[in-house]
Nucleic acid binder design. Structure first.
Lengths: 376, 376
DNA sequence: TTCTGCGGTGAATCTTTGT
DNA sequence: AACAAAGATTCACCGCAGA
């Protein structure tokens, strides 16, 4: 298992990677989610009905018919009915979420504002709104508006005070030219081979999301072994990507045909090798090392001096793990702050010891200890 | 002239172009907008307080202080108080709008969902949500979220049944390489010379919007001679752009200092010659491509290996877009540097994938994506 | 004159752990 | 629950000083 000690101890145990399970529950998502154990879910992804309220038919300039979303499940009598529906499923999802869990909801301008406001009213704490920019959106045939070239996802924690949610910052950054990931993502629509088609050759579901989108969602905010749920399973894109990425999955679906198609789809997915999924060992999750351990291990002797990078300042190492700068005594951090005249300082990356080869950062000594811990 | 024919014939005569006027009304925007003649306004642009609710300080990694929005006008006691405020100014604006007028409201995830839901509840008919993608957003300093790299604008008509609103479709398309204008706009922040500074050299207003953003708004949804109003005038960006583009303007502002600065700014603006109000062109830059996009598009599968030119080294591709060389994990660039023992490396021109025809540089795969993007 | 390096900064709901 | 301490963390662009 590739778990950081800190990460592993700070959270409830995960589902074992090898035993990851994937299932679809047929039925109403509110009723069925309420049967889950409260506080058992790591991540929720939801693609609820958009309440498009389309009137009449839409035709292309060449008079061909546009196959729009026109299903019963997308019809609501009023904003109020849609709001009630939204509150109900959000509450059921929230109950199932661990305190450290997060939730993603995707929508368009037809529904996302209502969803977002209700999420705030229910106490969810918004972390980001993410824009899915489509490389190949459907054009605006009438020429009366801007091409609707994006959808919006809301990423939120369960509560304002929620701590310890998963955000794989370093991995995202490494995958993005070493700059941090932004809130706008450019991803193509789900087309071609990936698009599920029925025996009649027609698309199974009108709003199937691209796996690339779900992959980025799961890779950014969940870890292998996590339990991911989707209240609106549809064709099971979330489940397929979850399985591929070593996450467990429960999808909820009212429509038997969708559920059947999704089950077959997910069953055919081959999980990626575990070592291609292992989380980074990040600085944030690396085990803590006390400065006194360097002394206990004999890497630094009491009475030696620590220097800043320019060797203008020298601080005396005390046997108890504090250091003395002039007549002041304190931690490596506090004394680093004093030395710089700043409010805070990471002493590990400020102080050096003198070696035959010149100054050596004490953070390198810490790294040696950590390497030894990993090898144990 | 850049006018759609359709737009020109469909409505009442406009204010004469030469007599365009520009003024700022000091006072509460709800009270003052209520004094306008009902149904007299062609376009509303509103940049209301975002209700950021910032708590403590934020410092950059270098310990410098982030100068955040901390003004009284952005403070509300609760969501409910903010909603009441929002309803009040939206209703006052709506009363002043012509039946064919449209309204733009800009916000961030802190407030835009509430604003959008209230607009729907009040009967506005949403036409688009537009994403302002910032080329140079402030980074996320703590690494706990995605960089908040965009803001959202809602563009709406007064009613569902409203006909004949202005949308300069042909001009926008001509200005955009002859393809329809999309709902995502890439525009830099307001910085440098354009940013209004006081005698102390500090920014006059914490949230001054770039003129490029307002120019695109006005060029897309108004015509020369139109009356444009802004309930939250601030430093008068809307007014300055309106004057330059031959539109009339009324701005409402509570703060006398903002009002004064805006008046001077607008007075200094020289309107463009009437016949030069041409559509504007945006240069397309070579888009940045993330390595993870190759995975998302299925061009490289997680678990496959990347090789150097001599095929002496192999690195494993991880699902998250990082690669693993030996026991080290990092970006294609970092691992290229490690492989070469150098400080830096362009991973795109270092790593290869194996194909039936031999090794293929991953930079070629990137070129394929860029070619597709250019063809959009 | 042109180039380079450094400092400043932008609507930000920006940590985690132990006492 | 409040507090203190440890310690992790930034991208694009602009202006200016100095070479």
């Amino acid at each position: 298992m590739v778990e950081s000690r800190r990460g592993a101890s700070a959270r409830a145990p995960r589902t074992n990677f090898e035993s990851a399970s994937h299932r679809i529950v047929l039925g109403d998502c509110v009723a069925e989610m309420s049967k889950l154990q409260a506080g058992s879910v790591d991540l929720v992804f939801a693609d609820p009905p958009y309440n498009l309220q389309l009137k009449g038919d839409l035709k292309r300039p060449d008079e061909s018919h546009v196959d729009a979303v026109n299903d019963d499940w997308d019809k609501f009598d009023s904003f109020s009915a849609y709001d009630d529906f939204t509150r109900a499923w959000l509450l059921a999802a929230r109950r199932a979420m661990k305190p450290s869990a997060t939730i993603w909801v995707i929508g368009s301008y037809h529904n996302i504002f209502r969803v977002g406001a209700i999420m705030q009213d229910l106490g969810f704490w918004l972390l980001n709104d993410i824009v899915w920019r489509k490389t190949n959106p459907m054009p605006n045939f009438r020429g009366r508006r801007f091409t609707n070239a994006h959808e919006t996802m809301i990423w939120a924690a369960r509560d304002e005070k929620a701590k310890g949610y998963t955000f794989n910052y370093e991995a995202l950054k490494a995958a993005n030219e070493d700059v941090q990931a932004r809130s706008d993502w450019l991803i193509p629509l789900c087309t071609g081979e990936e698009r599920l088609k029925g025996a009649d050759g027609k698309k199974v579901h009108p709003t199937q999301k691209p796996e690339g989108l779900l992959a980025r969602v799961l890779l950014s905010s969940s870890r292998p072994g996590d339990l991911v749920i989707d209240p609106f399973n549809g064709t099971g894109t979330t489940g397929a990507v979850a399985k591929r990425l070593g996450r467990s999955y429960i999808g909820f679906e009212r429509d038997k045909a969708y559920g059947k198609a999704a089950e077959m789809r997910i069953a055919a997915v081959e999980p990626l090798p575990e070592d291609s999924l292992a989380p980074f060992m990040t600085a944030r999750e690396a085990p803590r090392v006390a400065f006194s351990e360097l002394i206990e291990r004999g890497m630094i002797m009491p009475g030696t001096k620590l220097f800043d990078a320019k060797k203008k300042l020298g601080a005396l190492v005390r046997a108890d793990g504090a250091i003395m700068l002039g007549d002041k005594v304190g931690s490596i951090h506090r004394m680093g702050a004093v030395a710089q005249g700043s409010a805070a300082c990471n002493g590990w990356t400020f102080w050096h010891v003198e070696t035959k080869k010149g100054l050596k950062l004490i953070d390198e000594l810490r790294a040696e200890i950590r390497a030894g811990m990993a090898a144990e």
